[in-house]
Computed example of a mutant assay.
Amino acid sequence: MKLAFYGSSLLSSYWNGAATYYRGVLSQLARHGHDITFYEPDAFERQQHRDIEPPAYARVDVYEATPDACARVLAEAAAADVVVKASGVGVFDEELLHGVLDCSRRDALRIYWDVDAAATLEELEGAPDHPLRRRLPEFDLVLTYGGGPPVVNKYRSMGARECIPIYNALDPATHHPVPSEPRFASDLAFLANRLPDREARVEEFFLRAAALSTGKRFLLGGNGWHDKGMPANVTAIGHVGTADHNAFNCTPLAVLNVARDSMANIGFSPATRVFEAAGAAACLITDAWEGIEQFLAPNLEVLVARDGQDVADLLGQLTPERARAIGQNALARVLAEHTYERRGVEADRVIRQALAAKRELVAA
C-alpha cells in the first residue's frame, strides 16, 4: 500500500515537536506493509539540524520551499493509495491542503492528520471561511495525536466524516534509561521550545517554581529562551537534539511537562515528552489536565501539579528513592500499554478499514 505523507519534518526535531511522533507511527506502519514517502520542505533550518538521516522505513523527499517544488511533490499524490496532509507543515499549508484533495485519485484514502488538534480547532472555531474548515468534509478521515472525546466531537461538529485519536507513545528502542550526564545535572529539568501559547504556563509552572526553590537547580532546554528573564538558579541550554533526550531525562531528580494552553484546556493530550520521559524511567511532574489517568496514574507513576507552588512543594518533598520508584512505575506502564508498536497496530487497522470502505463506495 503506497502512502504519501506531507508533513513538517521526519528528519529533524528542530522547531518540530512532531518528529518523534512521526517516526514512531510511520516506522510501525512500514512494518505492517505500508510503502511510505514522506514529503518535507527545506525550511526553518531543519535540514541543517537533522537528528537522523533518511530511515529505512520511509523514502524522504526534501523539497525546496518554492511554489514549483510544492506543485511537483503534490503531483506525486496521484500514485498513492493513501494521501496524508499533516497539520503545521509551516510553509504552503494551504497549497498542500488543496493539493492533497485535488491531486489524489478518486479511490485514494485522504487523511488529515492533526498533530496539534486542540490549537487547530481553536483556530477553526473563529474562522468559518478557513480553508481547512471549508474542505474538511472532503477528507475521508481525520486522525489526531491526542484530544480524546472533546476533539473527536468538535471535529465531527465541524464536518469531519470521522475523527480517531492515535495517541503519542513510546518507542523503547529510541527512548530508554541511559547513564546520567553531568551537563544535565539538576533538580528539575524542562524541555520545550518557546511558543506564545505556552509561555505564560511555563512562567507559572517552571520559572515561578524556580523562584520559590532558591536552593534547587533548574535546567531549561529548547529553542527561543535565550532572551527570557529567569531566576538565577535556572540554566538555559538551548536546543537539545533527540540523541540527548534520554540523558536529559535520566539525569535530573525530576523532569517537568507543561502543556500548551489549548491542550491543557481540552485535556486528553499527553505530549510526546511525557512518553519520552516515562520511557527513560524519569520522575515526571506534569501540570494538571483532564484524562491523565488514562495514561499514567497520579502519585504512583506521575506527579501532578496545579501551579508553580505545587511544583515547588513536590520538588521540596521528593527524595531520590521516591523519584526512582515513580520513574520505574511509569516505565512499566508505558511499556505495557503505550508503545508505538501498539499505536501502529491501531493505525494500520483504521487505515485499512477506511481504505476498503472508500474503494467499496467508489466501485458502487
Rank of each mutant, 00 (worst) to 15 (best):
V152M: 05
A108L: 02
D42T: 06
F92V: 04
L191G: 12
L361T: 06
L253G: 15
P41W: 00
G88V: 00
L101W: 01
D114V: 12
S27F: 03
A357P: 10
W225N: 13
K358S: 07
L207I: 10
G316S: 15
V304F: 08
S262H: 05
L207C: 13
L74V: 06
S262G: 02
N223G: 14
L296A: 04
T66L: 10
L170V: 01
Q328T: 08
V334F: 12
C283G: 13
P298I: 10
A288G: 07
D35L: 01
P231L: 03
G24W: 09
A297D: 09
N249C: 15
G90A: 09
M158L: 15
D187V: 01
G148P: 08
S8G: 01
E360P: 02
R324P: 08
D81Y: 01
A185D: 11
A78Y: 03
F295C: 06
N265P: 02
S104Q: 10
L10I: 03
D307I: 00
L26M: 11
F295E: 10
A86L: 01
N223Q: 15
L284K: 02
A86G: 11
A192T: 08
H226V: 08
V345K: 12
D310P: 08
L219Y: 10
V178S: 09
A56Y: 04
V82N: 09
T286E: 08
L97G: 15
P298H: 06
E204Y: 09
T242D: 11
T174K: 09
D114R: 05
W113A: 14
P131H: 06
T66E: 14
P177K: 00
N249T: 06
P165C: 02
L191Y: 04
A30Y: 11
A357E: 13
S262T: 03
A210P: 14
Y155K: 00
E276K: 00
A297R: 04
Y167E: 13
Q309A: 12
I164N: 02
G221V: 12
T20K: 02
I52A: 15
A356N: 15
I351S: 03
P128G: 11
A363F: 06
A280F: 04
Y57C: 02
P182E: 04
F295T: 03
L97D: 15
D313F: 01
E203G: 15
A277F: 00
L188A: 07
C70M: 10
V274L: 11
P54V: 03
R260L: 12
Y155N: 06
E321V: 10
G222P: 05
P55G: 06
A247N: 14
A210K: 07
